[in-house]
């Protein structure tokens, strides 16, 4: 274990003021946290800010971390709370529409475009992404978070339950309902047919 310290071990070192241990934790989880926040709020630049905020909160609350609970779940609890606050803030202040976000977010195009793609393919990819974005955005908050944690971060149901602060059976039902809702939306949008051929 000397070459590959566990998260809990790194947190213990972090509590005693070891910043290199904390940096290792940030490097280990930055992409997972970023991926989660981005898929929940749909804005890359804001996701970057919230990702940084998540890790700063981890450092500030390192004293409250109990080594008995899994670090990954604890980390995502913080990210979930920040996302909840952000979504509530947006709901109150009527955030910019999805189109505005996409236009203001040059990175969204960069992620989509592969150099080998033809213009038609790029267009089709972009269209698909938008359909999925809209579909996920239409889900209720808790369903969206549970589904994103499962689909984009591959968390287990017990980890999701711990991050969302609910039971495993509640997570099971949230994810199932989210998929049922998406099934209707995606089939309606015609995304299902294209994928049926591929399966």
């Amino acid at each position: 274990m000397r070459g590959f310290p566990s998260d809990e071990e790194l947190m213990k070192r972090c509590k005693s003021g070891d910043l290199s241990a904390f940096e290792l934790l940030v490097l280990r989880y930055k992409d997972e946290v970023m991926n989660f926040i981005y898929h929940v709020i749909g804005d890359y630049h804001r996701a970057e800010d919230l990702c940084q905020e998540t890790f700063i909160k981890v450092f500030e609350n390192a004293g409250n971390y109990r080594p008995r609970e899994r670090f990954r779940s604890w980390l995502f609890t913080i990210a979930v709370n920040l996302c909840r606050n952000e979504l509530r803030y947006r709901a109150r202040h009527k955030a910019a529409s999805l189109e505005d976000l996409l236009q203001a977010d040059p990175l969204s195009e960069r992620f989509l475009i592969d150099r080998a793609d033809t213009p038609d393919m790029i267009c089709e990819k972009k269209e698909r992404e938008e359909i999925v974005r809209r579909a996920i955005e239409s889900l209720p908050e808790s369903q969206r978070m549970a589904l994103v944690l499962r689909e984009y971060d591959s968390l287990r149901y017990d980890e999701i339950a711990s991050a969302l602060g609910c039971s495993v059976s509640a997570v099971k039902s949230l994810i199932h309902r989210a998929r049922q809702n998406l099934r209707k939306v995606l089939l309606k949008a015609g995304l299902g047919e294209g994928y049926n051929a591929g399966i």
Partner: peptide, 23 residues
């Protein structure tokens, strides 16, 4: 099929600046 369709919205990675800013 729903799970596969969700892949259309690809994964993202955090830029290196995130680590620098956090530290």
């Amino acid at each position: 099929m729903v799970s596969r369709a969700l892949r259309a919205w690809g994964d993202v990675t955090a830029p290196r600046s995130v680590v620098e800013n956090v530290m």
